[in-house]
Write a protein that binds this DNA or RNA. Structure first.
Lengths: 332, 332
DNA sequence: CTGAAAGCGCTTACAG
DNA sequence: CTGAAAGCGCTTACAG
């Protein structure tokens, strides 16, 4: 900053003001300073800035894991928006219980970032209160709507389930099972609860009787096992609604290996529109994923600097869309 | 820290030394200081620490993009290792030319991190020199071996290609085409070059004549178009070696839509062992991905604190492994 | 609009 | 072993 000040012939105070776009600097000097800064490829030291009461220029992003399509795509959306305004992204993945525990107890993000984006992490009361103790603006992607009116972006999971099951009903299925993703370490995922609620609502509104629901661990293998369970039952349902595409893809794998023909003997539908859904010709309910990240990012950025970014609505529910492919057909 | 100094009746210099476990503090004072610190629930300010010459406790990770299986999986491996030792991960994605340009010209990582991990980003000479200007320890994952002996971890891409083509030759194929991923924005990807080299070597060592190579944009759609090109040729090869699984998956999609049976009419093989390869029954050459991230992470961490982490070899080449599935069979 | 100066909370030579 | 002091690179009243 001293270099920039020298090069533009002003004091560091003016540089600081100009760089932060503060009012009270004449357009001419501002221009000169910005040019000098660009020429020197100057970047502010977040430490010094922070130490003197400024922001860190960093935002923490918390994801359950990064090596899953949904999260990495949300992350890409966030990263793109941050990059555009020069905000650094500090990534926190909580793939297992120890990592999760460490995160909420030690609060490693404390004093290191200006805000936090929490992606799809279901929170216990304790965890929610720890997060509050960070004292940082926080926006949530997916899962529970925060009760206290904090910014949120996501889809209507119950509606998504209804769209999927509605499609099955519409083409004539009466015997529909569901493969549901189980709770992770005893913490209820709002997404799961909403999707199963949507399923039950549609089934009961259609006046159908009891329907089979098997609960498995989330993922392709979970889906595969879920379908094995259904195959071992007394009679095969004519259609299966899967909690998500990864579950559905696992289910398809089991069916293929069992020589059961899709959609002739059984229809399968998922939720997400995972890239593999297209490859596997899986009917699904698509949700915008990258966009959820982008909107969440804009929400935090608007919070940090209302002038820089057009603020999206505090709570944004994005639409989902039925995508019919080859894995669903009327029952025989 | 002033509080701790007062409470234990020493100078802040001694407190700083005692807290960092530096030698040169008498056991008695050290004890007194640690007790006082505990009583006051004192935590050092990372900002102040950094500003006075300490480390940032942060490492930058640069990836071409985060929403692709390979990169997000490497990232997960890195994140896990960092988390275990309390190092923060600053994520930089360079999905397009502007982002890439901004990164190398503005060097937003400067003064913000203690080291950098560069994942699979092919570098121009200019970019390499900019990176050097950061003056930070850097480790590379995949792509070119850095000439100057910097730490590197990856696989032998040429060998991987040979394993794939070797399999096709072994089961009797004589007419093998390749779908190759093209250069991205004019920058040659070492991975691409090595894989095509391996292909040509195997084909010529087998004494086969000219073989068709089509070059497409990386990704599923690229692979699909590549196969369309092959289909429009004079005669269908009996087997196709694809640069990677995503290309192969696209190729399979085209074949399915064209009603061409795999492996009966044509064999397809890829490289990676992408999760979808299993779902699509694709034969491939598997590479360890998460592990590449873990090793790279340990390399940086060992660099930053040789005592804390067991250092892996400076250059680590991980083995690849042929995984035979249903998409390859002897020619008719 | 602009600058001189204090201060953020540490680390690190430099003396003692 | 211990302390006084400079300085890290900023922001922010406070003057001009």
């Amino acid at each position: 900053m001293t270099d920039v000040a020298q090069r533009s012939g002003v004091s560091i105070a003016s540089v600081s003001r100009a760089l932060r776009g503060e009012s009270g600097v004449s357009p001419a000097t501002r221009e000169r300073i910005l040019t000098a800064a660009r020429e020197l490829a100057y970047v502010v030291s977040p430490e010094a800035s922070r130490l003197s009461g400024g922001p860190t220029g960093r935002v923490g992003v918390v994801v359950p894991r990064v090596d899953a399509w949904f999260y990495s795509t949300v992350l890409a959306g966030i990263a793109g928006e941050f990059d555009a305004v020069g905000v650094d992204l500090v990534l926190c993945a909580l793939p297992d219980h120890p990592a999760r525990h460490r995160f909420f107890e030690a609060l490693p993000l404390r004093r290191k970032v200006d805000a936090v984006v929490v992606v799809s992490v279901p929170l216990t009361t304790r965890e929610r209160s720890r997060l509050t103790q960070l004292g940082l603006p926080t926006v949530f992607v997916g899962g529970h709507h925060p009760r206290d009116g904090q910014p949120w972006v996501g889809i209507d999971d119950e509606l998504a389930a209804q769209q999927a099951v509605g499609h099955l009903l519409r083409i004539g299925h009466r015997d529909i099972a569901m493969i549901q993703a189980g709770d992770n370490e005893g913490i209820p995922w709002a997404t799961n609860e909403a999707r199963i609620r949507g399923f039950h609502r549609m089934v009961s509104e259609a006046g159908l009787g009891d329907s089979t629901v098997v609960t498995v661990e989330w993922g392709i293998d979970g889906g595969a096992r879920g379908m094995e369970t259904l195959l071992s039952g007394p009679e095969l349902p004519s259609a299966v609604f899967c909690h998500s595409d990864e579950i559905a893809l696992g289910a398809l794998r089991t069916l293929r290996r069992s020589g059961i023909s899709v959609p002739h003997q059984i229809s399968v539908i998922g939720v997400d529109d995972h890239p593999s859904a297209d490859l596997s010709d899986l009917t699904t309910v698509a949700q915008p994923v990258c966009q959820q990240g982008q909107i969440a990012a804009r929400q935090v950025l608007a919070h940090l600097d209302p002038d820089a970014v057009q603020a999206p609505a505090e709570v944004t529910t994005l639409p989902t869309r039925l995508v019919v492919r080859g894995s669903t057909a009327p029952p025989r």
